[in-house]
Simulated scan of single mutants.
Amino acid sequence: MAAWPFLMESPGRGGDRLRVSDVMSFAGGSGVHGTERREDHRYAPAMDTEERLRRIRRWLWIVLVGLFLSGATAFPLEIEVRWLLRALDPLAADLPALVGWIERVHTGLVETGDRYPFMLYGTDWLAFAHLVLAVAFWGPLRDPVRNVWVVQLGMIACAGIVPLALICGPIRDIPWFWTLVDLSFAVGAFPPLWFAYRHIRAIEAAGAPAAPPVSAPAA
C-alpha cells in the first residue's frame, strides 16, 4: 500500500512508491551504505541511470529548498507572526483556539524581544542550522551514491521529529493542533528523501559508476 499518493509516480515504469515494508527494511538497518547486503529485487534497475539521477536530484531539491526557506524565515519571526495574526484576524470567531494561540505567540515574541532580546539569539542559531543542513544536501546533489549518508541522516531526522513533538510539545505547553503542524514537517520531508534513497540504492545495485559532479554555473 502506498502512502502519500500525491507524490507517487507511474508505478508501472519503475516509479517512486513508498511502501511500509521498504521503510521497515531501512529501519532494520539493511540499507546502511557501505555494509554487506544481499542483492534485493526491489532495487533492480527498471530505468536508466540518467533518469534515476534526474529523479534523485528533483526530490533532493524539494528538501533543500524547504530547508532553506525554513531557515530564512526563522530570522524575522516577530514580523511574520504579526502578518499571520493580521491575516487570521477575520477568522477569529470561527477559529478562536488557533487565532488565540497565534496571538499568544506574537505577544511572547514582542515581550521577549523588548525585555530579553538575547533569547531570540537561540532562534537565530535555529535558522542557521537549517541553512547549514540545506548546504549539506549539495553533496548528494553532486554525487548521490557517495553522499547517500546525508539522505539517510535526513530520514533519521524526520523520524526523530515524531518523539520530539509528542514529548516536548506538551511539556512546553504547545497546543495539540500545533503539534500536528510540527509533525507535518516529517510527513512532508520523509517521502522525497525516501524516493531519492531508493533510486540511489538502485544505482548501487546496478553497479553504475558514481554520478559526474554537477559543475558550478559560470560567473
Rank of each mutant, 00 (worst) to 15 (best):
L120Q: 06
A196E: 00
G160V: 12
D173P: 03
V81G: 04
G139R: 10
D143T: 07
S30A: 13
V132I: 15
I56T: 10
G154W: 02
A218M: 14
G66P: 09
W149R: 15
A93C: 08
I203N: 01
A2H: 09
R104I: 01
V162T: 05
A97V: 03
L141I: 15
A2L: 05
I171W: 10
W4A: 10
A93P: 05
F68C: 13
A92F: 04
A127L: 02
V135Y: 13
G34W: 01
D89I: 04
T112I: 04
M8C: 06
P191Q: 01
L91Y: 15
V181R: 05
P175V: 01
A46M: 14
I171K: 07
L131E: 06
T73Q: 07
F26A: 12
A189C: 08
D173C: 13
L85R: 15
I79G: 13
P170M: 01
A46W: 03
A92H: 10
C168P: 02
F195L: 06
G113T: 01
A74T: 15
G28C: 06
T49N: 06
L7R: 02
A202E: 12
A93K: 11
A93H: 09
P192V: 05
D173I: 01
W101V: 03
P213E: 08
E9H: 00
M155W: 03
D114R: 14
D182I: 06
R198L: 05
V105M: 09
L64S: 15
V214W: 09
V148D: 09
V20M: 06
A216G: 03
L131C: 14
A44L: 07
A2D: 14
R54C: 07
P45W: 05
T35A: 14
A129T: 04
A205E: 15
D22R: 04
P5C: 09
G139W: 07
V150M: 04
L7K: 03
L133A: 15
I171A: 15
L126V: 11
V151N: 00
P45A: 09
L120R: 01
E103H: 06
V23N: 05
P117V: 01
P170K: 00
L60A: 04
W83F: 14
W61A: 12
I102P: 00
L166G: 02
E80K: 14
D124A: 14
A157S: 10
V110K: 10
L91N: 11
A72D: 08
G31T: 07
R38M: 10
R82L: 08
P144S: 08
G188T: 03
A165S: 11
A165V: 15
P163N: 09
W178D: 00
R198V: 12
E39R: 10
E78I: 10
L88A: 14
H106C: 12
Y121F: 12
H199N: 14
P191I: 00
P192F: 01
M8Y: 10
G100D: 00
D22K: 04
W178G: 00
R17H: 12
L180T: 01
L153Y: 12
R55S: 08
P90N: 13
F190K: 02
R19D: 07
L193A: 02
P191E: 01
V63F: 08
F195K: 05
R142C: 15
A136R: 05
V145G: 06
A165I: 02
T49R: 09
E51R: 05
R198W: 08
T123W: 11
T112P: 05
N147A: 12
A218H: 12
I203D: 04
